[in-house]
Design a protein around this nucleic acid. Structure first.
Lengths: 183, 183
DNA sequence: TAATCCATGTAACGGGTTACATGATTGC
DNA sequence: GCAATCATGTAACCCGTTACATGGATTA
């Protein structure tokens, strides 16, 4: 049971999903390709953490829909009280910034401007996600989801993404303001 | 030539370092163990990106001090104008937050309080780093390092770490404020 | 007609962690 | 006496990406 396994169980705690769905939904939290997820799901099913139902579809390939078993729910609960690993960020740009004084002005400016654009695009995506959350039928009519509401976690995570992204966007702007003007 | 290789070259662009030093210094930007770094350095030396000098020490084990070669400097410059990979964050806690509504109140509170403490500790570390940068003999007497100053990159990165950390700390506080009171 | 989406899988490879291995010095 | 720091290396393993493989439906 590695972290990705628990991630898949976390998603399945909300609702049943196909492997393809799980692959798409886990991306924002734990990037993984289908080639990693399909074999893991087979292993989790074999070890009885999840169960699988084959769902035939017209106009689309048949799919396997996975659900949490009782054993899977127990594993999730036990995982919750274990200490989580520290967050690990890997960002190639940070290595480049480290030796920024060796770069051409133009290279430095392009790099930071590119990252600024990235964060502005991300902001739009996250705001859209918030709007989509609010449109869900389960969304509470007055105010915010409470801690026991199924959407509580997704709401917290979207807010977290927005706040971190905004801090990084602001950093890009500040760093750009320190560079010499374009000629 | 993978990202870690360029990271090592970036550090060596500032000054020569031993493998052990490089291992310690690259941690904040690209976590890697010595078992990954030593073989890479041997490969980079063999391919002439870096050169190596054996430095005997009293009271300490001898060390190998690596320096950038002309080929290494060229590789760094070429790397700079290539587009950087998107940042990748892997944080087990985010997976737990996703299904937070399934957790006990106590578990949820402990998890978030633990992360808050982590960010407060990080803040101290980063402020110390800033202070150490300012105490360096190369630090400019008036104000901040300019974009061509060797310490410019390190300064930007420390500010970035502080800003991102503060956003995450604030998120922890906000999330904790949404949880029910301790009994 | 070519690309994209849905949907599942395997194989090969490279990246990263853990464990094995050694050994002197310093601080608790 | 025990742990940590400095210092280097190898071997086994797990994690993650890329590539190989298939195939119908929709869309540009």
């Amino acid at each position: 049971m590695n972290t990705l396994s628990y991630g898949l169980l976390s998603l399945l705690a909300q609702s049943s999903f196909s492997g393809y769905d799980l692959m798409l939904r886990i991306q924002p939290f734990w990037p993984a390709k289908h080639s990693q997820i399909y074999p893991l799901l087979a292993k989790l099913e074999k070890e009885d953490y999840i169960s699988c139902e084959l769902v035939p579809q017209r106009d689309k390939p048949d799919k396997k829909v996975y659900s949490l078993t009782a054993k899977g729910k127990e594993a999730l609960k036990a995982w919750f009280d274990q200490p989580a690993a520290e967050p690990a960020l890997r960002d190639e740009m940070m290595l480049k910034v480290f030796c920024l004084s060796y770069a051409k002005n133009e290279s430095a400016r392009n790099m930071l401007a590119g990252r600024l654009a990235y964060h502005e695009e991300r902001h739009q995506t996250y705001e859209l996600k918030l709007a989509q959350l609010r449109e869900k039928p389960e969304w509470p009519e007055e105010g915010l989801p409470s801690p026991k509401h199924p959407l509580f976690g997704a709401y917290l995570l979207t807010r977290k993404a927005i706040m971190t992204n905004e801090a990084n966007r602001a950093w890009c702007e500040w760093a750009l303001s320190l560079l010499p003007e374009e000629h």
